[in-house]
Simulated scan of single mutants.
Amino acid sequence: MRLTHLGGPTVLVEVDGWRILTDPTFDPPGRRYAFGWGTSSRKTAGPALAADEVGPVDVVLLSHDHHADNLDDAGRTALASAGVVVTTAAGARRLGNGALGLRAGEETVLSEPGKSSLTVRATPCRHGPPLSRPIVGPVVGFALRLGDQRRTALWMTGDTVLHGPLRRTADELDVDVALVHLGLVRFPITGPLRYSMDGKDAVELIAALEPRVAAPVHYEGWSHFSEPPAHLREAIAAAPPAVRERVVWLEPGAAREV
């Protein structure tokens, strides 16, 4: 598997002939985006590659369409040239154009000539504190299997806090490569409330999951991330070897074989 981190949550995944793009974000830095209910965030870093430099994309895995740090304007434009877009059920209704919508636990099977089939299963996310879903909206992660393999080739956690359904998913899945969304999202208007995982959560999740490789993503490039990247790296460095040795740090724009 080859991973190219483009910035934020956006990763180009190349595996078994499939070219898969996660949460497309290609806008330049500097703009502030409203997320609703008085929350907002400024994009502080641009993509390592522009959308037209990425090349053809077979599948877009879109954890949610309603927050610009997961789908910004240029990313939305790029959807038109992608093969299949898989997202939440609500997001598919909003996007139209053949987008496939999944709720947590549902799956779809994608096929293309000359490639192994790709089974995409939506996994649970809670993008905030308990009872926050009516405010933050639905979000899913994605677990991918190739052909008739039972092992999960890739798990993209999506934007989520560490909660019971996520822990149970980690216990259930046998994962090759995990993309772990972090950053400890917080907003001034909601004080200490957390909307995504931090380094401590990552250590706990990776310890339970035991993937071959875990790649932290979506922890930089936006002002609503409250955990500095240096703190995240310190948390991983201080983790037991069984966790620390699984972690791969992706350099933006550089393809990494894992």
Rank of each mutant, 00 (worst) to 15 (best):
E53H: 08
T10H: 07
T39C: 13
V60K: 09
V11D: 05
A34G: 10
D52K: 02
W37D: 11
A74Q: 07
G30E: 08
A50E: 11
L49N: 06
K43N: 04
V57I: 15
D73A: 01
L6N: 07
L49T: 09
L21I: 12
L21T: 00
W18M: 14
W37M: 08
V13G: 02
A34V: 06
A34K: 13
W18Q: 14
D52S: 05
P56M: 14
T39I: 15
V60R: 09
H5W: 08
E53Q: 11
W18P: 11
R42E: 15
V60T: 14
H64T: 12
V59M: 07
N70Y: 10
L3Q: 02
G46Q: 00
T39F: 15
D65S: 11
A45T: 01
A68K: 04
L61N: 09
S40E: 10
Y33D: 00
D58K: 14
D23V: 08
Y33S: 01
T10L: 10
S63V: 12
A68F: 00
D16G: 08
G30W: 02
R32S: 07
L6S: 07
T39S: 13
S63F: 12
P28K: 02
T4K: 00
T44Q: 08
I20P: 12
R31Y: 05
D23G: 05
V13E: 03
R42C: 15
G36L: 03
E14N: 13
T10Q: 01
R32L: 02
G46M: 02
A68V: 00
